[in-house]
Amino acid sequence: MKNLLTVLLVPSLLSLAACHSSEGRKAKDQVAGAQRNQEQAKQEQVPLPAGKEEEKPRETVVQTLRSGQSMRVRFLNPDGSGESSLVHCLSVDNHERVLSDPQMGGFLLAPGTRILVKNDTSNVPRDETTLKGDNIQFDCQER
């Protein structure tokens, strides 16, 4: 990543240096520095072994819910099955009132709660979550 940035930055630095001729020495120094960096970048570029791709880090999307807010989520269970649920952030310990509605269910988070789930990105209906991360972290905060 650092190498890539260096390679991308070098041409822009070169053109910048050419534009600002009044800062001659400074620009020359920059060009020289950039060229050195480019040489280093070339040296550091080691080709990956065939068939082995660079490991992509898993992305965690942080979703902060304020008291009273809910969000639909589809996450994976350890057996690989997808679970469609609702995450709701409580204001106080009023779970009985919230869950007294027969249509209500899912996970009720007390203020100060932080949970993580593995996002099930396969076969997500459009009316449900549009979160794209590999993992979703829900933080329940009081208003």
Binding site: H95, G105, L109, I115, L116
Partner: peptide, 8 residues
């Protein structure tokens, strides 16, 4: 995470 409370 520690300190969390979840009701179902």
């Amino acid at each position: 995470m520690p300190g969390s409370k979840v009701t179902v």
